[in-house]
Simulated assay, not measured.
Amino acid sequence: MAFCRNCGSQINDGTMICPKCGASQNMGGMPQQNYNNNGYNNGGYPNPNYNNSYDSGGIGWGILGFCIPLVGLILFLVWKDQKPLSAKAAGMGALISVVIGVVFYILAIIVGMGSYYY
């Protein structure tokens, strides 16, 4: 399967016009590049026409992942291929929340043990 040079949607190999956006896939005899859903071709080069505006990676996903780490982990796993920036934000929020929770738990144990001996 190939991907449209303009919108990044999946199209059949050899398709000359994208059925989704109507863009021509022939670029003057140049070989057609196949781009994946993240806007990169098989060689790892970005598609210059790829519009990634739906994946803003906003701080809201990080805050949600921080407040509810399980949701952040699930969003990271589900979105890591389709929305890598949003997935990273949700995953980082979840990771930071878990690390802070572990640190507070260890501190609570240390403080509790210290007060036990006095």
Rank of each mutant, 00 (worst) to 15 (best):
F3Q: 05
N34F: 08
A2C: 13
G28D: 11
G22F: 04
L73C: 11
A94Y: 01
M27A: 07
S86V: 00
G93S: 14
M92D: 08
K83Y: 14
I63M: 13
G8E: 03
N34I: 11
P84I: 00
S24A: 07
A23G: 11
V78E: 01
G39Q: 01
A108G: 04
R5T: 12
G44Y: 03
I106C: 05
Q10G: 09
Y105I: 00
M27G: 08
C7P: 05
S24G: 04
L75D: 09
W79K: 15
A89C: 12
K20D: 04
P46E: 14
Y45R: 11
L95T: 12
A87N: 03
V99H: 02
G114C: 00
G60F: 04
A90M: 13
L64D: 09
G62R: 02
A108K: 01
V71G: 14
S56Y: 03
Q10V: 06
K88D: 12
L77S: 11
F104R: 11
Q25T: 05
P46M: 08
N47D: 09
F3D: 05
N26D: 14
Q32N: 09
N52Q: 12
N41F: 15
N6R: 09
F76I: 10
M27D: 12
A94N: 07
F76Y: 15
V111T: 06
V78F: 00
L64V: 07
G44T: 04
V102D: 01
G114N: 01
L77P: 02
K20R: 13
Y45E: 15
I68T: 02
L70Q: 11
C67R: 09
C18N: 08
P48V: 10
C7H: 02
M27R: 09
N38Y: 15
A87G: 02
T15M: 10
P84W: 01
N41S: 14
V103W: 06
S24R: 05
Q82I: 00
A108H: 03
G114K: 03
Y35N: 09
G60C: 06
N37E: 06
W61G: 11
Y116T: 00
L85R: 02
M27V: 13
S115W: 03
N52A: 14
P84S: 04
T15Q: 10
N38M: 15
M16T: 14
G114A: 01
Y116R: 01
G22D: 11
N34G: 15
M16P: 07
Y117R: 03
A23L: 05
K83T: 10
S9K: 04
A90I: 15
I68H: 01
P46W: 02
G72H: 08
R5W: 12
A108T: 05
N38C: 14
Q33Y: 09
I68G: 04
I96L: 10
A89S: 15
Y117F: 09
D81T: 12
V103M: 08
D81G: 05
G39F: 01
M16C: 08
N42K: 15
M30F: 03
V98D: 07
I110T: 05
Y105N: 04
I96K: 10
G58W: 03
M16K: 14
G29D: 04
L77H: 07
I100M: 08
G65T: 12
P19C: 11
Y54K: 08
M92N: 15
G101A: 07
N49M: 15
G57H: 12
A108Q: 06
D13H: 10
G93E: 11
S56L: 07
C4F: 13
I63E: 09
V78Y: 00
